[in-house]
């Protein structure tokens, strides 16, 4: 029980610190959120970005995912089946 309260205090401390930092910082933002009434979705724009500007990270990520999957299978499979 003592442990949990300590954890809670720490978590609250962390929250307080970060929240204070967030509140006291002046964030630079645009004045008005861009609105596209005709098409509310920005999927298309994201898709274009992924396949133009971020195509190399995208490809790398695919390899990472693949290797993670293979690794996961290898670990999870264990030695039983061999």
């Amino acid at each position: 029980m003592l442990n949990k309260s300590i954890n809670a205090v720490v978590a609250l401390l962390f929250f307080a610190v970060v929240a204070l930092a967030v509140v006291s910082t002046t964030w630079v933002t645009v004045d008005e959120l861009p609105q596209n009434v005709a098409d509310q979705s920005n999927i298309e724009a994201i898709g274009v970005l992924i396949f133009t500007q971020f195509v190399i990270p995208f490809e790398v990520l695919s390899i990472v995912l693949l290797s993670a999957l293979i690794g996961a299978i290898y670990i999870a499979k264990g030695e039983v089946e061999q």
Binding site: I6, V10, A11, L13, F14, V17, A21
Partner: peptide, 13 residues
């Protein structure tokens, strides 16, 4: 992890 977080918090303060 708890110690790290507490430490970071205290350090920031």
């Amino acid at each position: 992890a708890t110690a790290v977080i507490a430490g970071v918090g205290l350090l920031i303060i």
